[in-house]
Design a protein around this nucleic acid. Structure first.
Length: 533
RNA sequence: GGCGGCGUAGCUCAGCUGGUCAGAGCGGGGAUCUCAUAAGUCCCAGGUCGGAGGUUCGAGUCCUCCCGCCGCCA
């Protein structure tokens, strides 16, 4: 990690600028939840944070989809954004600071300025182009990467990704001198090995750039759903150039310099593997061309495999996030994908695995722990958390376990974006607390009515409750609602303040939860799942 | 067609530069506590490490070929 150069700068994370051609699916939600956990974590470190998401609404594909549905492109986007995208993020408790739409004036005006700047600097020139074009990909294809059509498309060339016929297009286009940035990009990758993650993705990008870059066609004149080229309004700006700029326009580029300087560039651009190249090649080249600072990291997450069926932009499965949250709940949903699949690698998901982890990890290990501790404080101390006056080695071991969980999860979640590893560290501690209770047997100690026995009982239950306090703080970023329930159950808020305000750095400070708080049993954290389905 | 990568216990996966590397979690089986969401804790896995050769004193761990997946490129 490099030292912070601008102390007042926000930790800035973006989701991909999602193409709003259709409703969001599991893959979109996976990336967005990851970014939400990452930013919530950094907020709990006490940092200034900016979490951006938004939608890419231009391009031929959207135009045609809208046409097919008998509405204007803008109406189509409005409907999807308002009825599907924004509601899903609310549903999943995504705490984004902004939601930018590329059809908004604050974006389009700045995009024109940016492109005009490049034009004025000689980074853009006019040229002609003719070739096979895939509407699905929104890009020209090299003849060699096309497949021969079969069945209804027999005799035609089809796109290898979309399996649909390509069209021969001829355009007078404007080109960005991307080819000149190959060496600089390779230098960037070499000087910053972490710029692209994971490593497998990085290697592919490096190899791609090493083979030599072509100049990028950045205008289209065959349709008009886009941002006009300022000096030649017959053209609209290539949708990806338009879209990528959201990461700058949304944080004040060209309009609010103070905001821009305190936010830009991004610390982390989260992307799917399919759009990695746009973010790791074109985007930094665009910024270099206009003398703007480059993002710190572009991190690609892997594919989710469902029952062996891979999901992708062009192969949507029928699974909506709501199909899962309905059964498992939002908190468990947020937890599951990050816990079960190492971030950055492809991973398979199944209903059965989700169900198994829910029952074993969330309900039995974690939820039940909270339940048994609250029940005992209620039963033996009338719900008033007693003081720990007889601590010993067992309690020291617990405190050390919590400190370790804090350190490990902070490094893994907050720095390495290893959500699975970080969550595992927290749950190892949960397991340790269960083991502690089994060894200490407070239910037996409770029968010893001597002062020593009662002091020991008080100490055990205090230690268990204090452990849960730490767990609530650490899990808040991942499962805000349930962690809040636990926080309430511990009676912590009146004395310690809101859960979201608890600092990660202090989460391991043993003895933070003061004796005397009112512990209540409260709502079951993770109810057992219904047998159905 | 060229180049990554993958194929390890029922399931999901760890196994860096070759010699406790045959593992973890879950499921399953057994024991045990009883505070708790019939939850907790402890014990039990003998799987030809995709297949066939080869290098080596010794190979999931290196080489060759083959089979099956996946990605990038052409």
């Amino acid at each position: 990690m490099t030292a912070v150069q601008n102390p007042g700068k926000s930790y800035y994370v973006s989701t991909p600028i999602y193409y709003v051609n259709d409703r969001p699916h599991l893959g979109h939600a996976y990336t967005t939840v990851a970014g939400d956990v990452l930013t919530r974590w950094h907020r709990q470190r006490g940092e200034r944070v900016w979490y951006l998401t938004g939608t890419d609404e231009h391009g031929q594909k959207i135009m045609r989809t809208a046409e097919a549905n008998g509405v204007s492109p803008q109406e189509w986007c409005d409907k999807l954004v308002e009825e599907a995208w924004k509601p899903l993020w609310e549903h999943l408790e995504i705490a984004n600071d902004d939601f930018i739409r590329t059809t908004e004036d604050r974006h389009t005006a700045r995009v024109q300025e940016f492109v005009q700047d490049l034009y004025d600097k000689g980074e853009i020139y006019q040229g002609g182009y003719e070739g096979p074009y895939c509407v699905g990909c929104e890009e020209y294809k090299a003849p060699g990467e096309l497949l021969d059509g079969e069945g209804e498309f027999a005799g035609q060339k089809i796109c290898a990704i979309h399996k649909k016929p390509v069209e021969m297009l001829k355009e007078e286009n404007y080109f960005f001198k991307l080819s000149e940035y190959g060496p600089k990009l390779l230098e960037l990758y070499a000087a910053n090995p972490d710029f692209i993650q994971p490593e497998s993705a990085r290697n592919e990008v490096v190899r791609f750039v090493e083979q030599g870059l072509q100049d990028l066609s950045i205008s289209r004149s065959t349709f008009d759903w886009g941002v006009q080229i300022p000096w030649d309004p017959k053209h609209v700006i290539y949708v990806w150039v338009d879209a990528l700029l959201n990461y700058a326009t949304a944080v004040g580029y060209g309009s609010d310099q103070e905001k821009f300087e305190s936010t830009f560039p991004a610390d982390v651009h989260l992307v799917g593997k399919d759009i990695l190249r746009f973010h790791a090649v074109i985007w930094p080249a665009m910024l270099m061309a206009n003398g703007l600072p480059l993002p710190k990291r572009v991190v690609a997450n892997g594919w989710l495999m469902v029952g062996g069926e891979k999901m992708s932009k062009s192969n949507l499965t029928g699974i909506a996030p709501q199909d899962l949250t309905e059964h498992f709940g939002v908190d468990a949903y947020r937890y599951y994908f990050l816990r079960a699949i190492p971030f950055g690698t492809d991973g398979s998901f199944s209903w059965e695995d989700f169900s198994a982890r829910y029952t074993s990890e969330l309900a039995n290990d974690f939820g039940n722990l909270a339940s048994r501790v609250a029940a005992m404080v209620g039963k033996y101390f009338d719900g008033v958390l007693p003081e720990a006056k007889a601590s010993g080695p067992a309690e020291e071991a617990l405190a050390a376990g919590l400190a370790k969980a804090v350190a490990e999860s902070d490094d893994k979640i907050g720095e390495k974006l290893d959500f699975a590893g970080g969550i595992a560290a927290i749950f190892e501690f949960v397991k340790q607390v269960n083991g502690y209770l089994t060894e200490q047997e407070p239910w037996k100690v409770a029968k010893d009515e001597s002062p020593e026995g009662q002091a020991r009982l008080a100490t055990i239950l205090y230690a268990a409750a204090e452990s849960l306090r730490g767990v609530a703080v650490l899990l808040n970023a991942v499962m805000p609602r349930v962690s809040g329930l636990l926080w309430d159950s511990l009676g912590a808020e009146p004395v310690l303040g809101a859960l979201a305000d608890q600092r990660i750095g202090e989460a391991g400070t043993w003895g933070t939860l003061p004796a005397g708080v009112t512990v209540t049993k409260g709502e079951i954290l993770f109810p057992r799942l219904e047998e159905k389905k």
